[in-house]
Simulated scan of single mutants.
Amino acid sequence: MNYFLSKTMLDFFIAFGMVIGGAFLAGIGSVLVFQAPGPAMIDTADKLKIWAIVAAVGGTIDPMRVIETNMLEGHLSPVVQQICIILSAFLGAHMGTELIKLIGAEAL
């Protein structure tokens, strides 16, 4: 598999895993302090979504710099690849958040 596809898939699963893991740990923490886990998991998943995307793509400055320099030089292929990587990370974080909302709604 080429670098672009592996990077895209890896960023998807990093963002997905960050949201799922953080929300599950928030649920465990809420049980330890005798609170309902559902609302804590949903709230944490919503708050972690943007940070999961940022962590998956490796920060916010470098991807934007790649897009800017290549766009100004007229090289559109790296720009499209970088946007696809960001969208993949967003999709992973969003799917993780929706899964937590589904699980958290059952816990209510």
Rank of each mutant, 00 (worst) to 15 (best):
L5W: 15
L5Y: 14
S6C: 06
K7Q: 12
M9K: 02
L10R: 14
D11G: 01
F16N: 07
G17P: 04
G17E: 05
M18Y: 08
V19A: 13
I20A: 00
I20G: 01
G21L: 12
G21H: 10
G21S: 13
G21E: 10
G22F: 00
L25I: 14
A26Y: 04
A26V: 09
A26N: 03
A26G: 04
I28Q: 13
V31R: 15
L32D: 08
F34H: 12
Q35M: 01
A36G: 13
P37I: 05
P37Y: 02
P37C: 06
G38Y: 13
P39Q: 15
P39Y: 14
M41P: 00
I42E: 15
T44H: 08
T44A: 01
T44S: 07
A45Q: 07
D46S: 15
D46Y: 12
K47Q: 13
K49Y: 11
I50N: 05
A52M: 05
I53V: 15
I53S: 03
V54E: 02
V54G: 04
V54Y: 02
A55L: 04
A56F: 06
A56K: 06
V57N: 09
T60L: 06
I61C: 08
P63V: 11
R65I: 14
E68R: 13
T69F: 15
T69R: 14
M71V: 10
M71T: 15
G74R: 13
G74P: 10
L76W: 11
V79P: 11
V80K: 09
Q81C: 12
Q81R: 11
Q82F: 09
Q82L: 08
I85M: 10
I85E: 08
I86S: 07
I86Q: 05
S88M: 14
S88I: 12
F90P: 03
F90T: 02
F90G: 06
F90W: 03
G92R: 05
G92C: 09
A93Q: 01
M95R: 03
M95I: 01
G96C: 05
T97E: 06
L99S: 05
I100P: 10
I100L: 14
I103D: 00
I103F: 03
A105W: 03
E106F: 15
E106L: 14
A107Y: 06
A107S: 02
L108C: 04
